[in-house]
Amino acid sequence: MRATHISGIKNTRADALSRLERAGDYEVRAEELLEILKIAQRTPTLDAFAASHNHKLERWCGINSPIAEDGLMVPWKGEVVLAHPPVPLIVSTIQKAKREKAQVILLLPNWRDLNWDTLLKSIPHRSWDRKLQKEG
């Protein structure tokens, strides 16, 4: 294995992802979430990736959560999971949903050329393209 530096000019995708990772918390606007839940015709029971200041449900996972700090460590069987994972956890979230055959309302950036799009194609899903996030 050999490590090589790729300048930011030539490595725009990774550079943008690393900046997004450090950009702070993002959350879905309440009115947009209500619209998605209406379209999905599902009522989520667990907010898998949240914080005390932005959780959307009474049952949530994150730091200071009464359930768990890590939503990926909680069984999703029997839940309707609301998942708006941080970018580095998107692939793990999709893999968990597939492995547990869980019902998940998964909120993702619309970056079709990245690796999670292939994973999504391997599981039954419906998708809606909307601008949903606000910086928190």
Rank of each mutant, 00 (worst) to 15 (best):
A102G: 05
Q95G: 01
H53S: 14
P75E: 11
M73D: 13
G78L: 05
T45R: 05
E79I: 01
V80F: 07
E21C: 11
L82F: 06
A51G: 15
A16K: 14
I36H: 01
H84P: 00
V28Q: 07
D70G: 02
K77M: 08
S52R: 13
N64L: 10
K77I: 10
L89F: 11
G78Q: 03
L17P: 08
S65T: 12
R59H: 14
L46W: 07
R19F: 08
D70Q: 01
R29Y: 09
I90D: 05
K77S: 13
I94V: 15
D70P: 01
I94E: 09
S18A: 15
I90T: 07
N64I: 00
I67C: 12
R59T: 11
F49V: 04
K98Q: 13
R59F: 08
E32W: 04
E27C: 09
V81F: 02
G24R: 12
I39W: 15
D25I: 04
A83R: 02
G78V: 01
V91E: 13
G62V: 04
L57D: 13
T45F: 08
Q41T: 10
E27G: 09
E35S: 14
P44L: 01
I94H: 02
V91P: 00
A51T: 15
Y26T: 04
A68N: 10
E69T: 09
L46N: 12
